[in-house]
């Protein structure tokens, strides 16, 4: 699947390049920082990367697949992990409970998508509303604080290398190997490229859908649980993670139309976003200016990193459109 690619440059290059440019600019602007800027970026990035990896799996499962519930599931995971951890006295049980909550929320999405046949964006929107209702109910009279040991681990950076970031890096590698080297992985991307064709080839597309959405929900809740342990649980904790997770996945080179997943790019995208926020804060631009610049930068990265050559014709319509042609429901043009 990956071999079909027609460039020599791997698709995640652009996001890392952008991150490095921002990093250099940060050094130039502040004239200080050294390696700590990188250390701290790697301390914050893993949470966004975890959510991003889940989002990436969902997006690469074909056109129209997206999970807009990650933000609320993230917050819910955080609240549940801390609450359960506080009651039982064990942060492991807390994380387990968060994983369970993520699984349950994603199950709602899966049922709505596969059995009620609601388009993913609306199905996950409904899930997000339900997750937010549970969070609000939990938050009333909420008691509990993060476990000091887990918090200590998340802050632990021997020799300036955050240990938690290493764990997430290893996990990213695992996802990468899974996608490239296992039958399951290739089947998943096959579904993403052309669902109907994959089904004719004997791939169970339903199973793939169940897998990607459940993984995404679990990762979002787990990331939320860890993020809450890093600082403090909060109903609004996840709010920024929805748009950011989508953005870092796409900036990282994953195709929105499905069929190409780039786990390494999620790291590049996340680091780019985090460093960019830091740089913009540092320059002290007005919030208005920050937004305009951020928007134009995202568009610029898209302009450079997209699949088509900069000059010349678009080779062929999107895979997405190809699939539409295959879809029998398309009515004749009047």
């Amino acid at each position: 699947m990956i071999k079909v690619r027609n460039h020599a440059i791997p698709p995640w290059t652009w996001s890392f390049l952008a991150a490095v440019v921002v990093l250099v600019l940060t050094y130039i602007v502040s004239g200080r920082g050294g390696s700590q800027t990188i250390t701290l970026a790697f301390t914050v990035a893993p949470y966004l990367v975890l959510v991003g990896l889940g989002q990436m799996l969902v997006m690469s499962a074909g056109p129209g697949n997206i999970d807009v519930s990650v933000a609320k599931v993230f917050s819910l995971g955080g609240l549940i992990a801390i609450a359960v951890g506080d009651v039982t006295g064990s942060w492991i049980l807390g994380l387990g409970a968060a994983v369970g909550a993520g699984f349950a929320m994603a199950s709602i999405s899966v049922i709505a998508i596969l059995y009620v046949r609601i388009p993913p964006i609306v199905a996950t929107l409904a899930t997000s509303l339900i997750a937010s209702a549970i969070s609000l109910t939990l938050a009333k009279g909420f008691q509990g604080s993060p476990d000091p040991m887990l918090k200590g681990f998340l802050n632990w950076a021997p020799l300036g290398i955050p240990a938690f970031a290493i764990m997430v890096l290893l996990f990213t590698l695992l996802v990468s190997v899974f996608l490239k080297r296992t039958i399951w992985g290739s089947q998943m991307l096959a579904v993403g490229q052309a669902r109907r064709a994959a089904e004719y080839a004997g791939v169970n597309a339903k199973k793939t859908m169940v897998f990607v959405y459940l993984t995404c929900g679990v990762l979002a809740a787990l990331a939320g649980a860890l993020r809450a342990s890093f600082s403090a649980p909060n109903v609004e904790l996840g709010n920024d993670y929805l748009l950011d997770s989508i953005a870092v996945v796409v900036i990282g080179g994953t195709l929105m139309t499905g069929g190409r997943a780039v786990p390494a790019g999620v790291w590049g995208g996340a680091l780019f976003f985090i460093l960019l926020d830091g740089l913009l804060n540092l320059i002290g631009w007005s919030y208005a200016g920050q937004n305009v610049l951020k928007g134009f930068l995202v568009l610029a990265v898209l302009f450079l990193a997209s699949g088509a050559p900069i000059l010349g014709q678009r080779a062929s319509p999107d895979p997405a459109k190809d699939e539409d042609v295959a879809e029998p429901e398309v009515k004749p043009l009047s």
């Binding site: 748009l243 208005a288 920050q290 951020k294 928007g295 898209l302 997209s306």
Partner: peptide, 25 residues
């Protein structure tokens, strides 16, 4: 931009939304 650079509309409009917000401010 979406057509010529085969950029996904979702992300292009998402990027643009930051611009609208900034301009509005």
């Amino acid at each position: 931009l979406v057509q010529l650079r085969s950029v996904p509309s979702l992300i292009a409009t998402l990027g643009a939304s930051f611009v609208w917000l900034g301009m509005g401010l």
